[in-house]
C-alpha cells in the first residue's frame, strides 16, 4: 500500500498547521516522518505547541492545515475512535486515569476498549504493570492512593497494554526522580527497539531527548521546527 518514501513511515505529517478557535496559530507547516522501531523526542519551549501536536497525532484534534497520514491514510478519513483505541497508546501529562478504578482495572478497560482479543486480559495487564515495576500490592489500589510516579507507570502500562503501533507520551518523566526517569526512558527504548513500536515523546528534558533516535524541536509561534537528529 505504501510506496516510495512512505514505504517505511508509519506516520507522516504533511505541512501540518493548527489554529485555535480564537484564531491564534500555534503550529505551521510541519513535515515530520515517524517510523516503526524508533524513539522520537519532540522538544520546544512552553507554548510551542508540543501537547497540541500530540493531540493531533493521537486524533484528539484535527489539523486545521495539512494532513496526518497513518499507514498512508489521512486520519481525517478514518474512524478516529478506532484509531485511538487500537493503534495509538497515549500517556497523558496528567495521566487521565479513572480514579474510581484500580491500576489493573484501568489497564484492562483500555484493552477491552480496543476490541482486540487477548487470551488472558488480567494476566497481560499484570505483566504490563510489572514491566513498569509496579508490584501486585500496588496494582490493586485505587488510582488516588498511588503516588504521581506510580500513576505515571500505570498510565504507561495502559498505553502499552493493547499493543498499539504508536506510543505517544506527554512529559512522561516530568514527575519522576532521576532514577525513575531512566527506568521509564529505558522502557520506551525497549518498546521501540525490541517490539518495533514507534515511540514519540514530548519532553522538556534534554536527557530524555538525548536517548531518542530523532529530535523534532518546535519553535514557539513561528511555526518553524528543525530536525536535529
Amino acid at each position: 500500500m505504501n510506496t516510495g518514501e512512505n514505504s517505511m513511515s508509519l506516520l507522516k505529517l504533511e505541512n501540518v498547521g493548527y489554529r485555535y478557535d480564537s484564531g491564534n496559530k500555534i503550529l505551521n507547516g510541519l513535515d515530520y516522518t515517524f517510523e516503526k522501531g524508533k524513539m522520537y523526542a519532540v522538544t520546544g519551549k512552553s507554548g510551542a505547541g508540543k501537547t497540541t501536536l500530540l493531540s493531533l497525532i493521537s486524533g484528539l484534534a484535527s489539523p486545521t492545515e495539512g494532513s496526518i497520514l497513518f499507514e498512508g491514510k489521512d486520519i481525517k478519513t478514518i474512524d478516529r475512535y478506532h484509531y485511538r483505541s487500537r493503534y495509538v497508546g497515549v500517556v497523558f501529562q496528567q495521566f487521565n486515569l479513572l480514579p474510581h478504578l484500580n491500576a489493573v482495572e484501568n489497564v484492562t478497560l483500555s484493552m477491552r476498549a480496543s476490541g482486540k482479543k487477548f487470551p488472558d486480559r488480567q494476566k497481560r495487564a499484570m505483566d504490563m504493570l510489572s514491566k513498569v515495576d509496579l508490584d501486585e500490592n500496588i496494582v490493586r489500589r485505587r488510582i488516588l492512593k498511588l503516588s504521581g510516579g506510580e500513576q505515571q507507570r500505570v498510565a504507561i502500562a495502559r498505553a502499552l497494554s493493547y499493543d498499539p503501533s504508536i506510543i505517544l507520551a506527554d512529559e512522561p518523566t516530568g514527575n519522576l526522580d532521576l532514577n525513575t526517569q531512566k527506568d521509564i526512558v529505558d522502557i520506551f527504548k525497549r518498546m521501540a527497539k525490541d517490539e518495533g513500536k514507534c515511540v514519540i515523546i514530548v519532553t522538556h528534558s534534554p536527557e530524555v531527548a538525548k536517548e531518542s533516535d530523532e529530535i523534532y524541536e518546535l519553535a514557539p509561534f513561528s511555526g518553524k521546527a528543525a530536525a536535529l537528529g
Binding site: Y81, Y83, R84, S85, F92, N96, L98, L109, A113
Partner: peptide
C-alpha cells in the same frame, strides 16, 4: 470519566 473514556477511544 466521559473525557477519559472517549480519549482512550471509546
Amino acid at each position: 470519566e466521559v473525557g477519559v473514556l472517549t480519549a482512550i477511544g471509546i
